[in-house]
Amino acid sequence: MSSTRRRPDLPSEEVHSITNAPEPLADDLARRQKRYLVQMGIRIICFAGAVLSWGRIPMWASLLLLIAAVVLPYSAVLFANAGRERRDTDGTFMTAREIGPGTGAPRGLSSSDSPTDEPDGRT
């Protein structure tokens, strides 16, 4: 008879929770596409409202609709592209290194302009 009990001498395995799982990629993409299309629909309504109401309602209201029609595509693209790139880590891929003192004599920046300062001793 086989037992499904755990042996006490084995290390415990990590248990994954479904609530910590990320949203499926297809669902995330569909959600972002839907949000983008809704915002573009609002943009079309704002633009059509500005054109059709020009001269019929106060000018500031028509200009407000026109400004909304101009700004909405930028914000819609920002929101549509804000997807799965969030990370819990700090994103540091390289460690900072300190440059220590060099060895040997400095070359290239001498105070005299004589050609005898060549490293091989030629003039």
Rank of each mutant, 00 (worst) to 15 (best):
A68Q: 04
S75D: 10
D27E: 13
V70C: 08
T95G: 10
L10H: 04
T19Q: 10
P22R: 04
Y74S: 14
A21M: 11
S75I: 15
V71C: 10
T4D: 07
W54H: 09
A68Y: 06
E85I: 03
N81H: 07
A50H: 03
P8C: 02
A26H: 02
T92V: 07
V51E: 08
L10G: 03
M40G: 04
M1G: 12
A80M: 09
P119C: 00
V38E: 05
V15C: 06
G41I: 02
E23R: 12
A80P: 01
P8M: 05
M1D: 11
S110G: 06
S53V: 01
V51G: 00
D9H: 02
T95P: 02
G121Q: 00
Y36Q: 08
W54A: 12
P106V: 15
C46A: 14
I45N: 07
F79M: 08
V15F: 12
L78R: 15
D9C: 00
G41V: 03
G102Y: 01
D120K: 07
G41N: 04
S112L: 03
G100T: 01
D9M: 01
I45T: 15
Q33N: 11
I67E: 10
A69D: 01
I42A: 07
M59V: 08
A76W: 01
I18N: 05
R31A: 14
A21F: 11
D28C: 13
R86E: 12
G55W: 00
V77Q: 07
G91T: 09
L37R: 07
P24I: 02
N81L: 13
I42R: 03
S110F: 03
F47V: 02
L109S: 14
A50Q: 01
I42T: 05
P24R: 07
R107Q: 13
R6N: 06
L52D: 06
S75W: 08
R107H: 09
F79E: 15
N81E: 08
A21Y: 01
A26M: 11
R32G: 12
R122F: 04
T103P: 00
M40C: 06
I57V: 14
A50T: 00
I18H: 12
R122N: 05
P101I: 00
N81W: 09
G121T: 13
S111D: 13
L64S: 10
R7G: 05
P22M: 05
